[in-house]
């Protein structure tokens, strides 16, 4: 077992059920994506899903006419987040590939919408989740797909 994580071997060993992420999927079910760093990725996607979905529902239900483009894009973002969360929880090779495609799409979306909002602010009377590359969300929207892609690619080599 090559410990790829930090080398500080604490006396109280962490459970042996799930070995280190990179150290052969010994005890855990093959293709499982929610383990090790994957848990953190899933958690953040879950938070973004809840945030984006509830925000979209509220905005579209109450004030869609004010900024249709922005709210429609927020809804798209919400669907993408929810789908990625679902595939990550589900696990397996097919889900992993689907999630990888969606993470790439998400990254493209963030970069496109981010640039769009900066170039043509007049088209967006109100902010979207992806405005200014996710500035309103501590840049998580632009960092999360990168982390997700990293984790999903790494899960393949480990499996």
């Amino acid at each position: 077992m090559t410990a790829t994580e930090s080398g500080t071997a604490s006396g109280s060993g962490t459970g042996t059920g799930t070995g280190g992420p990179g150290s052969g999927s010994g005890g855990s079910r093959a293709g499982r994506l929610v383990k090790g760093p994957g848990l953190l990725v899933v958690w953040l996607y879950g938070v973004m899903s809840v945030g984006a979905v509830s925000r979209s529902i509220f905005q579209i239900a109450t004030e869609f006419d004010r900024a249709p483009l922005a709210y429609a894009l927020s809804a798209v973002a919400a669907v993408v987040y929810a789908f990625i969360t679902y595939t990550l929880v589900r696990g397996g090779e097919t889900a992993r590939k689907a999630a990888l495609v969606c993470c790439a799409a998400e990254l493209v979306g963030v970069l496109t919408v981010g640039t769009w909002t900066l170039v043509e602010p007049s088209a967006f009377p109100d902010a979207t989740v992806w405005s200014d590359y996710g500035y309103g969300y501590v840049f998580i929207p632009v960092l999360l797909p990168l982390t997700g892609i990293w984790w999903l690619r790494r899960s393949r080599t480990a499996a």
């Binding site: 962490t14 059920g17 383990k35 848990l39 953190l40 899933v42 958690w43 509830s54």
Partner: peptide
Amino acid sequence: LGALCAVPAAGLLSLTERSKWGSATVAAG
């Protein structure tokens, strides 16, 4: 409601991942 759920949800997740990543998830929560 979101504020109420954030930490307990992360805490439950950390029960399924008994490693440093469970702790990191609670910190993120």
